[in-house]
């Protein structure tokens, strides 16, 4: 395996910033974010695509960072929970999640927030059914989901111009 480089050096676009990063090439985006960029807001629950905890946005769409190769992220636009707030101002989704009990332990929360952001970016008035479908790839063990649905609905209302 002598041909395989020990590290690769690439540039990602993370939360709007051009971010050079060097990492072992076997790493997935999840590992690069958490271990090489210290963005530990993105969580992991299985690393096999079975829980949704590691969801981030790549070029605006939610993907599981545990199943995206780091080497395939060069130049791509990556959004994580760390980039969701506008300075000190929480994103309406964050505020609604905090206010309405959508985050209990908070572990699945970053993945759901990012998934919900992608939804609202596309569909500012999602129905309850659309919301349920949109986050059905994010397991939560605390809430029973209902307060999450309500928080996404509330955020949609608060985001109305």
């Amino acid at each position: 395996m002598a041909a395989v480089p020990q590290r690769v050096h690439l540039k990602f676009l993370v939360n709007g910033e051009e971010t050079p990063v060097s990492f072992a090439p076997y790493k997935t985006l999840l590992e690069v974010l958490r271990e090489d960029l210290n963005l530990t807001g993105t969580k992991h629950g299985c690393e096999l695509g079975e829980c949704g905890a590691c969801a981030v946005l790549i070029d605006g769409e939610p993907h599981l960072s545990c199943l995206v190769l780091g080497v395939e992220c060069e130049g791509r636009r990556i959004e994580t929970v760390e980039g969701l707030a506008d300075g000190a101002e929480l994103h309406p989704l964050q505020a609604a999640f905090a206010d309405l009990g959508a985050a209990q332990c908070g572990y699945c929360t970053p993945g759901i927030l990012m998934t919900a952001k992608a939804l609202l970016d596309k569909d500012p008035n999602p129905s309850r059914e659309t919301i349920k479908e949109a986050i059905s790839g994010n397991l939560c063990r605390c809430t029973g989901y209902q307060q999450i649905f309500e928080a996404i609905e509330e955020a949609a209302v608060r985001m109305k111009p």
């Binding site: 395996m1 395989v4 090439p25 076997y26 790493k27 997935t28 999840l30 590992e31 992991h44 190769l69």
Partner: peptide, 12 residues
Amino acid sequence: MMRLPWFDYRAP
């Protein structure tokens, strides 16, 4: 964390 084994990556 479950991790990938080492591999060489090619992008034709």
